[in-house]
């Protein structure tokens, strides 16, 4: 089945079975390998992307369910102020250990800050509980989200976005 997908602002025509998970299309067909496969059962969050702004697990999202939705992946993170602040905070605090979970962590963090410009520890824990890090970088992730939120509030007059 041939289908058009809007990924990071670019339209891609892909020819895959309609029940193919988006994650397979991103990685194997379109060549965007930043989004990772962790569990394949919507449990770990490594495959998190944004679909029309909502964080979704690409491993269990079939292409047929996407329609004209706008898909954004880790490769487009740097195109928003929130994304750039998160990248900077991640580097400043050296959040990453092995790195495998981090694109999913960052996409969840970006969705969090887009909806909540000044999250409390509890807000962060509630949202980021959907992303597993086997290296245990949770403490640094929380600190980096706070740093990014702070920076966005002080550098962008209208806050997030």
């Amino acid at each position: 089945m041939s289908q058009q997908l809007s990924i990071n602002g670019v339209t891609h025509t892909v020819d895959v079975d309609e029940d193919t998970p988006l994650l397979w299309v991103l990685r194997d067909v379109v060549g965007l390998t930043g989004t990772k496969f962790g569990c394949g059962i919507a449990l770990c969050g490594a495959c998190t992307v944004h679909i029309d702004g909502v964080p979704r697990r690409a491993c269990i999202t079939s292409v047929k369910s996407l329609g004209n939705a706008s898909i954004r992946t880790i490769e487009a993170l740097e195109t928003t102020p929130v994304g750039r602040s998160l990248q900077k905070a991640w580097l400043d605090l050296e959040v990453v250990q092995c790195g495998y979970c981090q694109s999913g962590q960052l996409m969840s963090a970006a969705a969090l800050l887009a909806g909540n410009a000044a999250p409390s520890d509890a807000d962060i824990d509630t949202v980021m509980s959907g992303n597993v890090c086997r290296c245990g970088t949770y403490g640094r992730i929380r600190a980096a989200i706070k740093q990014a939120a702070n920076e966005i509030q002080h550098t962008t007059p209208e806050g997030a976005q």
């Binding site: 919507a42 964080p55 979704r56 697990r57 269990i60 079939s62 969090l112 909806g115 909540n116």
Partner: peptide, 14 residues
């Protein structure tokens, strides 16, 4: 809002 059920639960069983 930032971690809705729909992050993992789509319109049908997957």
């Amino acid at each position: 809002k930032e971690l809705p059920c729909s992050s993992c639960h789509g319109p049908e069983n997957a």
